[in-house]
Design a protein around this nucleic acid. Structure first.
Lengths: 215, 215
DNA sequence: TTATTGGGATGATTTATATCATCTCTCTTT
DNA sequence: AAAGAGAGATGATATAAATCATCCCAATAA
């Protein structure tokens, strides 16, 4: 269980005594927005999507959480109300840690505490940049961002299978299913990417990056 | 100097020895994005705008910092590179605190550390919500959000003077100067607000809130 | 004083993208 | 096997908001 290098044995043991791992299947909901936070959640395996559900039916996909990442941490440390929902994209094991045990460790281990603060900040800046992309780039730039997100952050290679439907990908890009499909097809026609169903191969990484930068 | 209730005398003294207050005039730049962070910055008085400058000349105004708030904290605790810029809207005094002294206090005071974590999280959630507003509401909703922001967060009363130009207000609403003016004029014509130059009085708070909620 | 610059305001025009409407195909479900 | 249901795809149309073009006015500079 990779908690942190900064914990001593006693602290690791304390957390372990107060943790348990839960297995989830694809499409399971892990938590819903507007519910109270109950535990610290740490991804052990699988993929989970973090999203905001709008009252007027518009949902926004914020990020895909991968193993080793916390989910819902900002809400746990913020106002204790989940600000977004999480559901499973690929069968996942999630480690639930008791909040009080965790807080006790934070209180007595300053370095661990600073590390977490760094993590929360990075997380905030990341979501911040994603939303900036959605707000202030136009479609090709946003689609390019989605491609780069999978290629660089999630799979760390230029070819991969989308783990999401076109609708979900559109939610990630801040657009509609139709517009997403259209733009992706253009990329395909322009030979920027190879595309077959959910299979993607980025042919010209340079162009994708340029599109992302130009917005 | 209101650091925190959670610090003991020694810690307050340590921070005081490592702080100094700097006065700024309107339009002064406090820090520029992409520069390295140097100090913890705490607003003592005045108003400062926090904004992201886009390479393609599109700037986004994220928030207005008021006395008692930290500025740039997420970047300091994140990757040590300012992710946005700050400039003065109304003459401001800002307390600069040495990062190392501050970190030392964080390390030895768990409660203070947790408090800051809470603050950073709240800050993240706030910016997150503001950007969500910009991305997924249409103009009237976004303009309503700007009105509510000043009325509720900044001035805490339904009548106030805009401290920003129309252009800046548009950047806060994620739109253009022209569209901002037009929509605000409509609000005026519809008797939702009273408007004269920078003077604003929200006549029907209910309608403004409804507009914000409907998006 | 007369230019010049920048903010505020409005109308006309353009455009990016959402919305609407189909159609096909593949899975489920019954 | 038939009938939905949902995903992907594509064309036609609508529309919100950006862009462009002025104009006025006040403040600042020459």
């Amino acid at each position: 269980m990779p908690y942190s290098q900064l914990l001593d044995e006693e602290q690791v043991e304390l957390l372990q005594r107060n943790s348990n791992v839960v297995s989830y299947n694809k499409k399971d909901i892990v938590f819903r927005q507007n519910t109270r936070t109950s535990h610290i959640m740490l991804m052990v395996s699988g993929l989970v999507k973090i999203f905001k559900e709008g009252r007027n039916e518009r949902t926004v996909l914020l990020r895909i959480a991968t193993p080793g990442e916390y989910i819902g941490m900002m809400s746990v440390m913020g106002d204790q109300i989940h600000q977004y929902s999480a559901s499973v994209v690929e069968n996942a094991d999630i480690c639930f840690i008791d909040i009080n045990a965790y807080r006790n460790v934070l209180m007595e281990n300053g370095k661990f505490s600073l590390q977490l603060m760094n993590l929360i900040s990075q997380d905030g800046l990341f979501i911040f940049n994603r939303l900036m992309s959605q707000t202030h780039k136009q479609l090709p730039g946003r689609i390019a961002d989605v491609l780069l997100y999978f290629a660089e952050q999630i799979y760390r290679q230029p070819h991969f299978d989308f783990p999401l439907t076109r609708r979900e990908l559109a939610e990630l890009a801040g657009t509609t299913k139709e517009s997403f499909i259209r733009t992706l097809t253009e990329f395909k026609n322009d030979k920027i990417i190879y595309l077959d169903g959910s299979r993607v191969e980025i042919i010209s990484m340079d162009i994708v990056k340029t599109l992302s930068e130009l917005g």
